[in-house]
Design a protein around this nucleic acid. Sequence first.
DNA 1: CAAGCGAATAGGGAATACCAAAAGCCCCGA
DNA 2: TCGGGGCTTTTGGTATTCCCTATTCGCTTG
Lengths: 231, 231
Amino acid sequence: MRIPAHSVCTAIRDDIVAGVHGRGSRLTEEILARRYGVSRVPVREALRTLEAEGFVVTRRHAGACVAEPTEQEAADLLETRTLLEPLGASRAARRRTEAHLKVLRGLVRLGQERARQSNGEDLRPLGGWFHETLVRAAGSPSLAALLTQLRHKIAWMYVQEAPAGPVQHWAEHGAIVDAVARGDSERARALMTLHTERSASAYRLRFAPGGGLTERVRNAQHSVNTAGLLQ
Amino acid sequence: MRIPAHSVCTAIRDDIVAGVHGRGSRLTEEILARRYGVSRVPVREALRTLEAEGFVVTRRHAGACVAEPTEQEAADLLETRTLLEPLGASRAARRRTEAHLKVLRGLVRLGQERARQSNGEDLRPLGGWFHETLVRAAGSPSLAALLTQLRHKIAWMYVQEAPAGPVQHWAEHGAIVDAVARGDSERARALMTLHTERSASAYRLRFAPGGGLTERVRNAQHSVNTAGLLQ
DNA sequence: CAAGCGAATAGGGAATACCAAAAGCCCCGA
DNA sequence: TCGGGGCTTTTGGTATTCCCTATTCGCTTG
């Protein structure tokens, strides 16, 4: 599986989010390098980036492991998003361009259509794109980076159940875009607050809600992962 | 100036915040390596980290430059902090340990003392330590990392004027710690909201508020920096 | 037999050398 | 004066090497 070296970071992150590298599993530079078909240096750079993003933890001379966020951290993640997403919406209402509006309206149109017909899984990525473009319309790269990181982590720790009312869900998206189009930043913020609070209930923790995995099981999983990497 | 290679990242970040590497100035790997007395590899890793943190921007095959945040981004930074700091306070109220409380009370005691006597600059770091320990008491490493990054960036882009009423300022700190000690998360959040909103007015943008520096001046500064690096 | 200590090993941290490719520049010519 | 082409600089990436530390396994000893 040879991968362009400059996107090793994305590849590893995706694999972590997808569960290929399990929580707490060891990330050996040599093995990663072979797995993605690059040398150790790009791997190390990627690991530094992922460490800064909070996906891996490193101890000096002891290498990198996939992080093991607690239930508390996972909860904070959702709450952080419910705080920042409205900020993005309000900023977007002030700074959006016509091009942004066009894309947003297209996404909403598509989403509402599909929500009415197929309540299937194919509108999950649409929701992601919607929020992604919205925060980009806010014209603040750092805020956008923050929120995309948050979404990545949330996708990692939570499994998003099919939203209870997809039509309602996308109606809210539409209302937000309307407020953004009118430049009504306060209404956009309020609507987004409601929206994120409502959709937060559709997220369920991925790992055992009780107390996490035992050491025995963790080590077993680790062996499995290592074996898989060596194939 | 030989520096342990594993802290090159911190060194560069500190230099950026301190203004040694000016906004938009070029960061050549070779020069950085010589400046900090390490080889290119640690420098490259550090640059990846700093890129993830938003302090530098890189274009493929065109190297790294110190970022040039717009006025908008700077404003968003302050607003983001006023949103996240209260979250940290409320979490701290639920999760703080006795050890945390002890340190916080000590800091407040010290700060209030110095605020009464010398309204000088020596209580600036105290404020930083206070907020730092408070967010660590929240027991959420990711939230703590987020807020420390925010503080670094704010220190980079803003010059903090001596707070108008240091006594009042530290009285608010005391009230927050009291709420945290009682486990009253909602009151801690509310107090912190007030506190951050109030202190936000003490920050003034570092760079020219009009339209930034001209290309001419920027290049001149760049030469100066380069000369300084080569000494 | 248990517990603790020490040696062996594996893996990360770092330096160095080297190459390819892309970007930026500088100069020359139209 | 402006545009294009070649040259140089610098980055991206690989390979190799050395050193150092954490871990682990086994041995010794109580």
